[in-house]
Amino acid sequence: MEKRSHYFFAVRIPEHTKLVMRDHMEKIKEMIPFSRWVHYQDLHITLAFLGGAPPDKLTEADKNVRNALSDETALKLNINKLGFFGSVTSPRVFWADTEESTHLQTIRKKVFSACEQAGFQLETRPFRPHITLARKWMGEHPFQNDMLKLWEKLQPMPLSFDAIDVVLYQTHLNKTPKYEAINIYPLTHKHIK
């Protein structure tokens, strides 16, 4: 029996970037022990996590987000380093970071507001754009901050990609990859900053 689905809005990572990330993750995995690594097809930047969403609220959020993003343009993002959430010695989430982008912050605010207007109670912590790579440290020794320098060795220059759409994903916990794109919200291609 499948657990109740969760839904979230996210920036989709393009396929060619996911493949580069997959190769980097394979190398990182050999040196940094986390118990659960994200399938490369599931890589994304979460904008708003809805949780288990009633159909009427989901329909309203879909409509609101589509309207909110109707005049938004595509943007260039740069993956430039690794980071973590949780304990310094035993992180719970290991992620890749993107360089600061005011355009991404604007898109996130629009998506977040559109979901709130549909009646969703969302996470109130400040938005920290990231791409989750793995969860739950399981090393025999404490995590070392030097491990974060691995990214610079694998990717000396930032890994750039064009974010051309936002996606509403549904989670399927019994599948791999586990995120299914339900709706796509194209960001117009007038110009990429």
Rank of each mutant, 00 (worst) to 15 (best):
W151I: 00
A134M: 12
K63M: 15
I131H: 05
L19S: 10
D42F: 04
D162A: 10
L187P: 03
T89P: 06
I45P: 00
N80P: 05
Q117Y: 08
D162N: 14
F8K: 00
K136G: 09
Q170E: 12
E72I: 02
K153V: 10
T17K: 10
K63T: 05
L77T: 00
F9C: 07
E26W: 07
F120P: 02
A61L: 04
S35D: 15
T124Q: 02
L148V: 02
S70W: 13
P14H: 15
D23E: 11
Q170M: 03
A10K: 10
I32F: 09
V38N: 08
D97M: 07
K110P: 03
F9A: 04
S87D: 10
G119A: 15
L104C: 06
A181F: 08
K18F: 08
D146E: 13
F34V: 09
K136E: 14
E100N: 11
H6G: 04
N64V: 00
E100W: 06
W37Y: 09
R92E: 11
R22V: 03
F9G: 00
I107Y: 09
S113P: 01
V65S: 00
F127W: 05
N183D: 06
R92A: 04
F94W: 14
Q41T: 03
V88M: 11
I45V: 03
L168V: 05
F127T: 01
A96S: 12
D165T: 04
R92Q: 13
A48E: 01
L50A: 06
E116T: 12
E116C: 11
E123L: 07
I13V: 05
P126Q: 09
K136S: 15
D165N: 05
E152W: 14
V111Q: 08
A163C: 06
F49W: 09
E30G: 12
L77Q: 03
I32W: 01
F34Y: 14
W95R: 04
F9N: 03
F84H: 14
